[in-house]
């Protein structure tokens, strides 16, 4: 599974991105990520379901998420106001992994 995640905006200028191919991730990270992708049902979310997504809200983060798996691809953009509740654990993990990666560099 290919993951591309970006987060920008916000009161504090901590922009994050995380790009990964789950095949080459450490087993523990891979399992956690795949589990959260499954539980969030992200592949079933339609961009059109994310109401008010075109509007910008002061200081809210904006997110871009692309997941490609076995010929199926999902690209979503949303913000803190329009984010589906089921995605929160996944976003928290992306923040953790992106920071880990940045601090390693």
């Amino acid at each position: 599974m290919r993951i591309d995640f970006e987060r920008e905006g916000g009161y504090a200028p901590l922009q994050l991105e995380y790009h990964a191919d789950t095949d080459v991730l450490p087993v523990e990270t891979r399992d956690k990520l795949l589990d959260l992708v499954k539980r969030s049902k992200v592949m079933e979310i339609q961009q059109s379901d994310l109401e008010r997504s075109s509007q910008s809200f002061p200081d809210a983060f904006t997110y871009k998420l692309s997941i490609t798996e076995g010929g199926k691809s999902k690209s979503l953009s949303f913000n803190d106001i329009t984010v589906p509740a089921s995605l929160h654990p996944l976003l928290e993990l992306f923040q953790e992994l992106a920071l880990e990666q940045r601090l390693k560099k």
């Binding site: 009161y11 809200f57 002061p58 200081d59 106001i81 923040q95």
Partner: peptide
Amino acid sequence: YGVKYMNAYWDGDEMTFGDGDGKIFTAF
């Protein structure tokens, strides 16, 4: 709001503040 959420925002009706992670940012 959220887990280690590093932000604060206005959504058109109300204000929302995260706790930060305690290392990079404290609570907003």
